[in-house]
Design a protein around this nucleic acid. Structure first.
Lengths: 340, 340
DNA sequence: CTGAAAGCGCTAACAT
DNA sequence: ATGTTAGCGCTTTCAG
């Protein structure tokens, strides 16, 4: 039960040297005599010395810590399907570089600013990986302005800020194109709330694919919902009840797509025969539907890895090969679109 | 672009007082004159002062941070189905108590000790929430011995250590009992690796229910697998091919149960008519199988909440109402067992 | 009511 | 080769 903390002073005394020498010895500085070094090391291991990183941080003005900031409540942050993969990718890099990971969420939607400020300016972290909030969020600017190194996980207009961005536009394009390639021409889209950049991008990707295939965009084929399976089912029923002619649905995420698919089946329609369905986010759930869901996989672990690496480079003062990185999604073809 | 950090000294100078007075003023100490306080506060807000928490921590010998330690690699830690809910529960408490959350994983299975030691003794965190490792993990003892307040998220024999434990035994019991109540008598169990405490507990709960209903335990009805759907399918095929008579399966987790269910259906068996299936862990995926999966829900967000609250109490030197808390799982009845 | 001084644990410039 | 000193930013006696 080692309750009291053993400090450098303790081991210096034990080894019969000054704290300065002890410090140098432990850092392996060659100015200190071999014999002294050994004495110090022995004392350290004997007393089970572990340096107090707070003291070290204060001195060095760095914390060897990076913060992952979600400008959202914990509830939102940790229910997002991407979060775990992101955490995994980030952790893998950090753990190998001996950095700590601080995970920060906001107490409430109202109270964001305070939370940001605190993390950003209190020197608890040397750099920040910032999850994008809703597009209107003005607080982000503060973080970006704070002077701390930041990697932003989304689109940013200003070429100065480092980003790792996934290509949601391209993903949506691929999914829609896949439907088009299966001969579908009346493709509906269930969109997620448009104050998220990803929602905007997915809608745009969908439109762009239609355009490239000469299909005029029909706003009545886009139906806006939130993120749940139930919403997807609603949307499908709504499309059906509205008497719209449609032979495919591109869901703004997998939950929407799965909800829609099941609702269609309950209405007696066949997927993919009557309506092909594609999703986006690659939930494990999509592997067990009948038919299994064609979807878009975003390499979120890779996003995390790249972001962490980029940040560490910045902290080391090393030049970045690219300030802004775009990672490519992958189309996962399963049965729900009729290919395969 | 606030690059240079503004310190207490800066605002003291600006307000024309000493740093001591400035500090007192900002902390709202009533010894300082109203007028001075206002001057200091004004200077602070003018210069956009945010206290350096590293300095404060060094002084106060606490970090206002708690660490969540997974004695596992990031890959393992963040692919566990419970993790996100746990994080959510913990974050919610911490964010309201102005604590930071450090999430710590191990670089590799071999390198655990170093990782633990560092977090535990370097004073980066004031307390620890510890995710259980495999039962043989001896390093845990070090953490528990470190003198830092710890809340352990599992079973611990010693009544001294604070725990928040979910009742996996009870969950397995409930699931098995539910099958028994549906009149099933030949219940197989697909178990997860037995070097995890939860696996042992679930197997024990299963056995105990059988016993209470007067069914002799038959070891050949337990088949050990890992965690995946494919393993569940394997197990089901193996049971089927082995010519065992069985009318129900209790899966050691939902993936195993779902895999098994689907394999059985592919073999032409009906679920629940021929074989009832119950799982355990309540994945969203279980809601969309046909039939939907009966399962056990462990309130992991609540586990997180309780653990964080308990730890904060300990840090505040407040007495704990209970050192060890057991949270109760809930049986979620859906179609796969024939009830409902 | 306010300021001077000390010190948390560490490291680095500067002596010796 | 090692020790002395100073200081990172903060809080808290202790004097005044």
């Amino acid at each position: 039960m080692t309750t009291t903390h053993v400090t450098l002073k303790d081991i210096a005394r034990k080894a019969g040297v000054s704290t300065a020498t002890a410090s140098l010895a432990l850092s392996g500085d060659r100015r200190v005599k071999e014999k002294t070094r050994r004495a110090v090391e022995e004392a350290a291991s004997l007393l089970n010395y572990v340096p107090n990183e707070i003291g070290r941080s204060l001195r060095a003005k760095k914390a060897e810590t990076i913060a992952l900031i979600f400008p959202n409540t914990p509830r939102f942050a940790f229910s997002h399907p991407y979060t775990v993969h992101l955490l995994q990718g980030i952790s893998e890099v950090l753990v190998h570089n001996h950095f700590h990971l601080l995970v920060s969420t906001a107490p409430s939607e109202a109270d964001e600013t305070a939370a940001y400020e605190k993390i950003v300016r209190n020197r608890r972290a040397d750099g920040i990986i910032l999850w994008p909030a809703t597009v209107r969020d003005r607080h982000i600017l503060r973080i970006l302005d704070s002077g701390l190194p930041v990697v932003y996980l989304g689109k940013w207009h200003d070429g100065e800020v480092a980003t790792v961005e996934r290509d949601e536009f391209g993903g949506a394009y691929k999914a829609t194109e896949h439907l088009l390639k299966q001969g579908r021409r009346r493709i509906a889209h269930i969109s997620t709330p448009q104050h998220y950049q990803v929602s905007i991008d997915r809608l745009a990707g969908y439109k762009s694919a239609l355009e490239d295939y000469g299909i005029p965009f029909d706003p009545s084929m886009v139906i806006g919902k939130d993120f749940s399976m139930e919403s997807g089912a609603d949307a499908a029923r709504q499309l059906h009840a509205g008497g719209f002619v449609f032979d495919a649905i591109f869901g703004g995420n997998d939950r929407l797509a799965i909800g829609a698919m099941r609702a269609l089946q309950q209405l007696g329609l066949s997927v993919p025969h009557d309506v092909a369905v594609a999703g986006c986010t690659n939930l494990e759930m999509g592997t067990i539907t009948t038919p299994a869901l064609t979807t878009i996989d975003q390499p979120m672990a890779q996003v995390g890895t790249l972001a962490a690496q980029k940040l560490i480079h910045m902290l080391n003062g090393e030049p970045l090969e690219q300030r802004q990185t775009l990672v490519s999604p992958q189309l996962i073809i399963r049965g729900s679109c009729g290919a395969q």
